[in-house]
Design a protein around this nucleic acid. Structure first.
Lengths: 199, 199
DNA sequence: CGGCTGATTGAGTAACCTCAAAATTTGTGG
DNA sequence: CCACAAATTTTGAGGTTACTCAATCAGCCG
């Protein structure tokens, strides 16, 4: 990782740091207190069980914010998925809580709750459809986009296996709902049908 | 619901309101902005899919706090499970964000993330074990306690069916790890073994 | 005691997982 | 630019967990 440039925007000024694909941003036990805004690229936050099972808690795309924790130390891993620029923002040392940070925390909680709903009660097709629609919405409702993450990342995010993810992609493709322009570029051909599939 | 008594503790003074078992505290679309501390009883927060599938997002026991939302309106249902007393606390109108509220939000997010991990990557036995250990820990590490919620509530919280919950209880019982003093009263006979089962 | 609700148990099934192999893509060096 | 190796993704076959449907059982209340 390397410092690219100091950039204004948040008071005071914070610099943007670049991480290579796969680079660790923080790990469980690391000191928390700083949070991050994604300038470009994508981040994956995850946790491991003792036997290696992995759950991806969240993906964070350009413009999104992550890294706030309840405790002094982090409980999860955060890694850059592709080459990623992050603006690090320190929490005010005086213990003050900005309304912005609270809003971000509450939005994060809402996202987490919707994630629980999805993996607790939806089928594989519903989860993948929901995931794709969410990715499109978060990038401004575009109809095609690159997936920065691997099939394994998607599987671990949705509580599925890589094979099931692959099979559901194939199913949605053969139903004409999506098109795979390349292995990582998805086009949502029938967005409204996909939306209705999320139940 | 009825006002029981105004109680000091939070500045300014807020009164405790009692809800009967099953009573609705708020529903999706209701105006948010107030949050609640459980004085006694237990609360369930959940959401429904269009076809009736239900996901319980969280249970809240005595002493715990819930109800903060990112938006102006609630996105979930909150209901009293048993007769429950709640202290309603309004968010400061001046837009100020108290550090306490931020801490509560961050703790809520951590809980949600652990919930995601559990239902995304753990087996039925691991989920039930984790649930029971969590219930014990949240009540001060006691070894037996009443479950305020039904088997259906537990199933909908853990992303399982009522039958699977029942079967796993039977399995843990016949393995000598728990004892069912009554249908709603669980005794954790081997807490450390249960803890190790959560992976 | 009968009727109701909630919980348990049983039998069969379906969705998703596991293991294995083939196909495709990506990266590297010449 | 091509060839080869490594990594990722897809596809296939079979297995397992948890689900569905159904019946029985237990507790509760009038």
């Amino acid at each position: 990782m390397s410092i690219v440039s100091p950039t204004a925007g948040f008071p005071p000024t914070y610099s943007v740091v670049t991480f290579n694909a796969g680079a660790e941003i923080y790990a469980p036990g690391d000191k928390a207190g700083t949070f991050y805004q994604v300038e470009f690229g994508a981040v994956r936050v995850h946790r491991l069980l003792s036997d290696g099972r992995r759950q991806v808690i969240a993906f964070h795309l350009a413009g999104e914010t992550f890294g706030f924790e309840a405790d002094r130390t982090h409980s999860f891993f955060a890694e850059a998925i592709t080459q990623t620029g992050l603006r690090a923002i320190s929490r005010p040392a005086n213990g003050e809580a900005s309304p912005e940070l609270l809003t971000l925390a509450l939005r994060g909680m809402l996202r987490a709750h919707e994630h629980i709903m999805m993996i607790g009660r939806q089928t594989a097709v519903e989860r993948i459809s929901g995931f794709l629609v969410d990715m499109a919405d978060r990038q401004g409702g575009i109809e095609y986009f690159d997936l920065p993450m691997s099939r394994l990342d998607i599987a671990d995010y949705l509580g599925l296996t890589i094979e099931t993810v692959s099979r559901v992609f194939a199913k949605l493709r053969s139903a004409g709902l999506i098109k795979l322009r390349s292995i990582r570029c998805v086009e949502l051909k029938k967005l409204e049908t996909l939306r209705s599939l999320c139940a």
